[in-house]
Computed example of a mutant assay.
Amino acid sequence: MADDDDVVYPLTGNDDLIAAGLVPEDDDDIRDNAAALLGINVSSGSTLIDLDGGDGGGGVASAPSVPTTWTPVGSNSTDGISSLGKRKSDVWVDFDEIYETLQKRAIGLRLIEIKHSGENIAERIAAVVEEYCLIDKIFFITLDNASSNAKAMNTLTALFAGYLGPDPSPDPLDPSNRKYSLEYYNAMGVRPRKFGLDMNVRWNSTYLMLKHLLSYKNVFSVFINSHYGSQLSTNHWYVAEKLLEFLELFYDSTIVLSGVYYPTSPLVLHHILEIASHLHACEKDQNLRAIVYPMKLKFLKYWQDIPLLYSYAFILDPRAKIRGFFNMLQLLGEYTGSEYSSYYADAKT
């Protein structure tokens, strides 16, 4: 075996394989793989890979190399280095546009190991914002409708007033202040409570809002009319009662068809028929006609072509069977103006 002084450094992987009597690797494959994965040229005289990051302290010295192309992060240019001073491989060229346009950053994701109250949420948010010096750079804040978030914003609004503006909460002279509302509740002998809001993304929210509101209509009438003039009249409450009556069937159908402890598929056609009959009858009401017509169009869009699964479940119900299914289709056709004879034949076969 040769002495160490006779060995020429550095030994390559192929030299070791040849010395061991094994077949060497194909240099072309090595070059191709290195070019694809590392973005460097490993031909003779090229730069050796610096495992220490090129920061000194034991790194392998670089030999003269063939110039290669590097892509900076967040730039359309394919030359240069990244914003962190690191050279970037050509394989990332396709991602330049994403790096340039996408500017979302999660700067703080702090765990709240105690109660998620408004005070604790506000404390964590304020700590992150102060840590990154963003107090005077907050443009808007997006939250869901949790009550703890609303309480947190009551604390944070004063801190972020530089961009968010003044505290929007009512001052003592504002008649909408909760203190004055409580006085009216106590004077009317009604227990104070919170009311739900009408939300576009929550089913039956309008119905639930009106249902809880109508029992307090006298309190609201006295409170609003005494501070804002004659804003609420009996006609307004009449319209609210009509809307509550109109929406009640949709709420009941949602509750029944959302059950989990009983089969709901046999009940679908029952409620489709009830809703179709309800919309057909309300079309004649002058107060509801404007909202019933688009609702009926939407209803027909989804339920004019009834899925056969619900028809089979309806037929297998001992209360309905095939005769009840035939009668149901006849009534549904009268309410919607649709023809279901061919659909009945398909269901039978």
Rank of each mutant, 00 (worst) to 15 (best):
L316V: 09
R323C: 10
S62D: 14
F299L: 07
I49F: 07
S43T: 15
N149H: 04
L164D: 01
N154F: 04
H116I: 06
C282H: 15
R202Y: 00
V73R: 13
A187C: 00
A150K: 09
I49D: 03
R178F: 12
R178K: 06
M1N: 10
V260D: 14
D171T: 15
I315W: 04
D252V: 14
T349S: 11
L332H: 06
T78I: 08
T142Y: 06
P64I: 00
K88M: 15
D28W: 07
D174S: 13
T68E: 06
K284Q: 11
N235C: 09
Y163N: 14
V256G: 03
E100G: 10
E131N: 08
S233H: 11
A63H: 03
Y344P: 01
L308V: 10
S65T: 05
A63C: 06
L109M: 15
G333Y: 04
S338C: 15
N200M: 01
R319F: 09
G196F: 04
T69E: 14
I141G: 05
Y216Q: 08
S65Y: 00
H270F: 10
S342R: 13
L197E: 11
Y310D: 02
L159K: 12
E25M: 10
P172I: 13
L102G: 07
T142R: 01
L17N: 02
R202H: 05
G162L: 00
A63R: 14
L197S: 14
D285P: 01
Q231M: 14
E113K: 13
L111Y: 13
Y99C: 12
A150W: 00
Y184E: 08
I315D: 02
A146F: 06
K298H: 10
G54P: 00
L22R: 09
D16K: 13
M295C: 07
A276S: 08
A345M: 03
D32T: 10
I107T: 09
R87Y: 05
E334I: 00
K194P: 07
L51A: 12
L269I: 12
D29K: 15
S258W: 08
